[in-house]
């Protein structure tokens, strides 16, 4: 079990989920799939083309589905689909119950029986807990928490922060034009 006394976040490991140019130093992105700030951070990091290593900061008191979604993402990772599953979860944060996870898994062509077995495994639970405890030992106080070398950030990265790391922080999110459905829309 990880010691919780102060310690820097561990350097990149072979089993980290990394996206982007692997020759670049990664941003360690400690996050939770139920957290709206994490979804925004994920979007900004992705649009900036940042090299990111995703690690779990799955606090049981954060949300009823925090740990369950983290476990499901690790189970998807066992089938080589961590980032696709991650994108799907962040792209639809209002729907994180099991039927929604199965829908994402089906859409990605994953083996559902294997996913269900893996997400309940001790190995997956240990992985999520390891990441979370390492984040806490590193002084994380909120979701998300990011580390880029000696630079730490509690919260969502803005353009200036991304610029400092050499990424294009000017990349803006598109304006949302999606019409919100009326509460009565679609009812008979």
């Amino acid at each position: 079990m990880t010691d919780l006394r102060s310690a820097p976040p561990p350097p990149l490991r072979d089993d980290d989920h990394v996206r982007g140019d692997r020759s670049a130093p990664p941003i360690l992105f400690y996050a939770d799939f139920t957290c709206p700030r994490c979804a925004l951070a994920h979007e900004r990091l992705t649009r900036a083309g940042a090299t990111v290593a995703f690690r779990h900061l799955a606090l049981r008191a954060k949300h009823a589905r925090t740990v369950a979604t983290a476990h499901a993402a690790e189970a998807a990772a066992a089938q080589g689909a961590f980032w696709a599953f991650c994108d799907a979860l962040y792209g639809d944060q209002g729907r994180l119950d099991d039927p929604h996870l199965w829908a994402h898994a089906r859409a990605l062509g994953l083996d559902l029986e294997r996913l269900d077995a893996d997400r309940r495994s001790a190995q997956v639970a240990d992985r999520v807990q390891r990441d979370t405890r390492e984040a806490l030992a590193a002084g994380a106080t909120t979701t998300p928490t990011l580390f880029a070398g000696e630079i730490a950030l509690a919260g969502v990265p803005d353009g200036e922060w991304l610029d400092r790391l050499g990424y294009d922080g000017s990349v803006r999110l598109p304006k949302t034009t999606k019409k919100l459905a009326s509460p009565t829309e679609g009812r008979a």
Partner: peptide
């Protein structure tokens, strides 16, 4: 300003 849980474990040790 928010103190991390790590500081409590440092103090206990």
């Amino acid at each position: 300003t928010l103190p991390g849980a790590n500081l409590i474990f440092d103090a206990l040790a």
